[in-house]
Nucleic acid binder design. Structure first.
Lengths: 135, 135
DNA sequence: CCGTATCCAACTGGATACTG
DNA sequence: CAGTATCCAGTTGGATACGG
């Protein structure tokens, strides 16, 4: 006979102190689906520095393609995080700027960036250690 | 003759108040590459509640496959964010818990989750508006 | 229970060329 | 300058089956 203790295991922890949302995953995925792609965060950070034109963004974010910049800014506009102002001059000019909501999100992201810089060495060390121990 | 004012445009903004890192993108991508996949954040949040076994994580995160749970926890271990304790019993048992570094990252993520809940309605509204105006 | 291995569908994003 | 459109390679991740 094998142990059939499914869900009878007394858990080590007793409470849920960290999660401010009951026991479910709430809407975390909503944010991360927005932030999870390759470029959104970089655009957000660049726009946090001030209003930018299309070409300025493109130059400020090395490696991004026209296509991805268009897609990324469009999504941000759609979500109400960025505002687009089109000047019907010739040649055309478009300004992108964060909305208030976008600015508050950019703040969160900056915190993550800070964390990244603080811990990047520790993470690198951990990786090296792991890679050595796992042939 | 066309305008050749490349980089001669007087910028609207004067300073870079938001970015704590000069003018470059620093290591932001490092964090987001770790957080950007479909499951890492959810695992992080679940482990923030306490130590969990493999099956517990699987049940706590609806929709995750065995494969992805293995991959995700392994990456987190490799990066030094999660620690794994294997009890060589039968049937085998494995405990996953956040390291100190992992806990501090989970804190950041919680902040994002909070932001998400606060603004999810506003984002949804913005999307609806956009979708109506863009046939 | 805790994984690993294989196969495969779907999506992401780069390169390129073209329009207003 | 500011996009749009098309094509295509690489990766992510789900389903499934198997092993310790």
């Amino acid at each position: 006979m094998s142990v059939t203790n499914t869900a009878v295991i007394p858990q080590v922890n007793g409470s849920a102190p960290a999660g401010p949302c009951g026991d479910d995953d709430c809407g975390i995925r909503d944010v991360l689906d927005r932030l999870g792609d390759r470029w959104t965060v970089l655009v957000l950070v660049e726009l946090a520095k001030g209003t930018r034109r299309f070409r300025e963004l493109e130059r400020a974010i090395p490696g991004i393609s026209q296509r991805m910049l268009t897609l990324t800014t469009k999504r941000l506009c759609r979500d109400g995080l960025v505002e687009r102002t089109l000047y019907p001059t010739v040649p055309p000019q478009t300004d992108y700027r964060l909305t208030d909501m976008g600015r508050s999100l950019a703040g969160m992201v900056s915190a993550l960036a800070d964390w990244s810089r603080e811990h990047k060495d520790a993470v690198a060390a951990a990786r090296t250690r792991w890679d050595q121990q796992h042939p």
